[in-house]
Each structure stands twice: as structure tokens, then as C-alpha cells.
Amino acid sequence: MRFDGEFELEDVPPEKAWIVLSDPVAVRNSLKGCKYITPKDESFGFDDYEPDEDAETLPEADPEVVAARAFEEGKEYAALMQVGVGSVKPRFETTVTITERDPEQFLMTAVGSGSASGSSFSMDSGMRIHPSDGGEGSRIEWWTEADVSGRIAQLGSRVIDPVANKIVTNFFKDIERQMSDVDEGTDSGLTDRLRGLL
């Protein structure tokens, strides 16, 4: 299955959009059904990990803290997702690796896989932020190739597609809100500092 699209942010420049989309906490907060996204090592246990539910995001968060937890190229992350698809509400234990992260081109790609009782998936996804044509805003291009098997796959695209589209639409609406908050709450000096840290 392939999902892709573009999203316009009228007044948020690519530099600030990149900062928000580089923050695992901001992404988690915008992704319905996502309990956490955190670096994963050999000792990581999905059942043992306790996420910080109250972790601050920009503009309230300390820029040094946001920069320290930003996605890193080559790093592996654990994400716990629970999303209802039809009558099924699986709990996906997901591993994601950032395969490319280019702050000059505002490009990030990732591969991942996850499993739940009777279902599994693998994915190859990415996003690129472009300056909007003739404006101060951004155009975010995103794509995901997913291979789903098991109980969820049996539901078919007629059931899966609307759920996926709703998750993506809600994600970008919430990301836009966060980006607007960052745009209003941070000056250009802070943005430049964060860009340097990231």
C-alpha cells in the first residue's frame, strides 16, 4: 500500500517546520494512538518503558533539551502505536530507523516494522519540506510504502485507507498548530540557534 500527499503551511518557514518535525515528542503528541517514540537499545522492553507524558515541546521547552532528543540519522527508535481499524485495535510494537536526515535539504527518511497479535507491517517512509511558492510558508511532501499482513490486511484497503487518511490528516493539523505556536513563540535568533544544534 502506498500513501502520499502534500501539506501546505502558509506562514511557517521551512526552518521552523524542520525543527518541529525533528522532535520525537512533538511527533508523538500529534500522532493519534502513539504512546511514545524513544531511542531503542538492546535492553529496551516495550512493556517496561514508561514515557514522560508531560515532556514539553517548543516554544515552552528548553531548546537544548529539544536538540538533544531530536531524531538522528542511523539511530533506531521504538514506537508504541494503538490504532483501531474496523473492529480490531492492535497494539503495534514498532521499530523505526532514521535512514537519512539532511538538514540542508529538509529531508528525512525512515524504515520500520511492527507487529501485534496476528498482524504485522513494514514500511518505508519519508518527508521533505520545500519553501512554498512565492510565500513565507512551507510545503511538506510526505510518502509511505507499507506492507501489511495478518488480520488487519484481511480487512482490506476499503477499511484501512480511511483510517490511515484520518490519522495523517489529524497529524498534520496538529503539527500545523504546534508549528504556528513555535513560529509565534520563538524569535529568529532562537530558530538559528536550534538549527545550529540540530
Rank of each mutant, 00 (worst) to 15 (best):
E64P: 06
V88S: 04
G134E: 12
A110W: 08
V163Q: 14
P131S: 10
G45Y: 01
E15H: 06
F121T: 08
N165E: 14
E56N: 08
P162W: 09
L197C: 09
D124E: 15
L190D: 09
E76H: 00
S87T: 03
I160Y: 12
I167M: 14
N165F: 09
P162S: 11
G74T: 01
A70E: 02
L197M: 13
K35E: 11
I160P: 11
V88T: 05
N29Y: 05
Q178Y: 07
S43L: 04
E136W: 06
E8F: 11
S149R: 12
Q178W: 05
F7W: 15
A68K: 01
D174H: 12
E6H: 11
E53T: 04
M179W: 11
T57A: 03
E145Y: 12
E136N: 06
I175P: 10
G126T: 02
T144N: 08
R158D: 10
G126S: 05
R195I: 13
V65D: 06
V12M: 07
G112K: 02
P51A: 04
T95S: 01
N170T: 12
V159S: 08
E141P: 08
G5C: 08
T94M: 02
I37D: 05
P90K: 01
G118W: 04
K40D: 01
G134Q: 10
E60Y: 11
E60K: 05
V25R: 06
N170H: 12
A79H: 02
R193K: 14
S115H: 04
S30K: 05
S43Q: 06
M1D: 12
E184G: 11
A17W: 11
N170L: 12
S125I: 05
F71H: 03
L155N: 08
D147N: 09
S115Y: 02
L190K: 13
K173H: 14
D133E: 15
D187K: 02
A68L: 02
S132D: 14
A116Q: 00
G74P: 00
A17P: 12
D133H: 10
I167V: 15
T94S: 00
R28T: 06
G86A: 03
S30Q: 06
L31H: 10
D62K: 09
R128M: 15
F46R: 00
R151C: 07
L197E: 07
D161K: 15
E64L: 13
S138F: 06
D161E: 13
A153T: 10
Q82C: 04
E10S: 15
G189R: 15
P13D: 07
E136V: 04
S117L: 14
K35N: 11
V83K: 00
P63V: 07
E42K: 01
V111H: 09
S87E: 02
M179S: 13
S117N: 13
R101W: 13
L80R: 01
V85G: 00
E64T: 10
E56D: 14
I167K: 09
V182Q: 10
T38S: 01
R128E: 15
F46Y: 04
D48V: 00
I175M: 14
A26R: 03
R195S: 12
S180H: 12
F44W: 04
D41K: 03
E6S: 09
A67L: 02
F46I: 04
A110S: 12
T109R: 06
A67K: 00
Q105T: 08
S22V: 08
D11N: 15
